[in-house]
Measured scan of single mutants.
Amino acid sequence: ATNIVGKVKWYNSTKNAGFIEQDNGGKDVFVHKSAVDAAGLHSLEEGQDVIFDLEEKQGKAYAVNLRIK
């Protein structure tokens, strides 16, 4: 899926990971530091509006192509 709108639920820069809550009510999506880095960002803030694509690896959904809304 592409161009999904959501809000950062939480992001821990020590653990280099967090979750994004989908505005469409879907399951929360894992976001890794690699996606944050690829977006040219240093970190994510709780409640921040984002747009992202979903990629599945080994049955788990990940946020990729992250951008700030």
Rank of each mutant, 00 (worst) to 15 (best):
A1W: 12
A1M: 13
A1T: 13
T2E: 09
T2W: 12
N3E: 07
N3G: 11
N3H: 08
V5I: 12
V5T: 15
G6E: 01
G6M: 02
G6F: 02
K7E: 01
K7D: 01
K7Q: 05
V8Y: 03
K9F: 03
K9L: 06
K9S: 03
K9D: 01
Y11N: 02
Y11D: 01
Y11R: 02
Y11Q: 02
N12L: 08
N12S: 13
N12C: 11
S13F: 10
K15M: 14
N16T: 07
N16Y: 09
A17H: 15
A17Y: 15
G18N: 01
G18P: 01
G18A: 03
G18R: 01
F19Q: 07
F19P: 00
F19C: 12
I20L: 10
I20F: 04
I20Q: 01
I20P: 00
I20N: 00
Q22F: 11
Q22T: 13
D23P: 14
D23E: 14
D23L: 15
D23Q: 15
N24S: 10
N24G: 12
G25R: 07
G25I: 06
G26F: 08
G26L: 09
G26H: 09
G26Q: 10
K27A: 12
D28T: 08
D28Q: 10
D28M: 12
V29S: 02
V29P: 01
V29M: 02
F30M: 07
F30L: 06
V31K: 00
H32F: 08
H32L: 07
H32D: 10
H32Q: 08
K33V: 08
K33L: 06
S34C: 11
V36N: 02
D37G: 07
D37E: 14
D37H: 14
A38G: 06
A38Y: 06
A39S: 11
A39C: 04
A39R: 02
G40M: 07
G40N: 09
L41F: 10
H42M: 12
H42G: 11
S43R: 12
S43H: 12
L44C: 03
L44E: 00
L44A: 01
L44H: 01
E45F: 15
E45C: 14
E45H: 14
E46V: 15
E46P: 15
G47T: 03
G47I: 02
Q48L: 10
V50D: 00
V50Y: 03
V50T: 02
V50Q: 00
I51W: 08
I51Y: 07
I51T: 08
I51A: 04
F52L: 02
F52G: 00
F52H: 00
F52E: 00
D53N: 05
D53Y: 02
D53Q: 04
D53E: 04
L54A: 03
L54E: 02
E55A: 11
E55M: 14
E55F: 14
E55D: 07
E55I: 14
E56Q: 11
E56L: 13
E56M: 14
K57P: 03
K57V: 11
K57N: 10
Q58V: 08
Q58R: 13
Q58I: 07
G59Y: 04
K60L: 11
A61V: 15
A61F: 15
A61T: 14
A61M: 14
A63V: 06
A63F: 01
A63P: 01
A63E: 01
V64E: 03
V64M: 05
N65G: 03
L66D: 01
L66A: 01
L66G: 00
R67V: 07
R67C: 05
R67D: 03
I68K: 06
I68F: 10
I68G: 04
K69Q: 13
K69C: 13
K69N: 12
K69Y: 13
